[in-house]
Nucleic acid binder design. Structure first.
Lengths: 187, 187
DNA sequence: GTCTATATGGGGATAGAC
DNA sequence: GTCTATCCCCATATAGAC
């Protein structure tokens, strides 16, 4: 394993701080201190704090999808993969001490003020939904019994709701609830 | 209608800015400028920005519940009241240009750093859920057919998911989806 | 490519006159 | 109770030496 490059270390440190403290509450000075670099080096790699934010979200998106890929790789049926999506997000919440969804968090912080970021988040959530849709299509090929469009929305919105309430309650209970509900939808 | 008191004007202006721009992105200087007062006056009414945040959330909570009370007053059956909760949140989203839920937003911004605020939000969401539960109990007194606990969670999490996705997509579609789903649960 | 020094502006909060 | 003046600190970003 090669030594971590400076640019990657910056992204890693900044990501951690953005996620745990919030984007606006994290200063450039704190980032360079924890990454142990000078401010000139940071601006050599990223032209602004906003570019750093983009790199952060891009990395989180890639890790989210590859993480799920790995997490559900051993499962064979589409219904088990859908249910493992609940487990996956439950696991992510637990291991981050219920810090919530990166993408919902950043939208809550920036509001309307940054269209590039807002668009990225919108597309990210569309990809997540497309993943559910894809699994549901596979499921329906075997047992054509459920309303595809409505069930996709149902599962996806339950997942988002569960993540949000898990963050607020610092508890995984909401995931256990929706797992039962989704099992009911797929039976 | 009496003239608005200074303290109320501060809260109103601050609330609007906190909601539209975010709490951390809103400075004291901007608040006093838009409220047209001096900084000394602000600190005469509120000892810190954090106290102003508390007043904001308290006001939003009161307005949320009284707003729903009024919105659903004309409806007689519990199932219609539950469905009107979907319409109510849809209406709030539209009239705020999809700015999202005040309480989810502030949790996303402050993270773990402010236990008093976190507790307040947690209790607020419990009250919202208790409202759904109460309506569902009334519903079940007539038609004892549904699993109460599970259905409360189901409806509540769908609502939270719909609000979040409505905020991200700047669209009310998610509310139309969950209204159909909830109608299915109550039939 | 990494460093230090600095620019410029805003943050939250306090003191004390009126 | 409202005002102005001010404190100290930190924000993002740039310039230019090495």
């Amino acid at each position: 394993m090669k030594k971590e490059k400076v640019k990657d270390r910056i992204i890693r440190v900044a990501s951690d701080l953005f996620y745990k403290q919030g984007f606006n509450s994290t200063g450039i000075n704190q980032i360079i201190a924890e990454a142990d670099i000078a401010i000139g080096s940071l601006y050599n790699h990223f032209s602004s704090k906003n570019e750093l934010l983009k790199a952060y979200l891009l990395k989180e998106e890639q890790e989210w999808f590859s993480g799920f890929e790995e997490y559900s790789a051993k499962l064979s049926t589409p219904e088990n993969k859908i249910l493992s999506l609940v487990d996956y997000r439950k696991k992510l919440q637990g291991s981050s001490k219920f810090a919530g969804c990166h993408f919902i968090k950043i939208i809550s912080e920036i509001g309307d003020g940054n269209p590039v970021i807002s668009d990225f988040v919108r597309k990210h959530k569309e990809k997540q939904k497309a993943l559910v849709k894809d699994l549901l299509v596979q499921y329906n090929e075997k047992r054509k019994s459920i309303d595809e469009e409505e069930t996709v929305e149902n599962i996806f919105l339950l997942l988002e709701g569960a993540v949000v309430m898990s963050t607020i309650n610092k508890s995984t209970d909401s995931f256990d609830h929706i797992k039962k509900i989704i099992q009911g939808l797929l039976s």
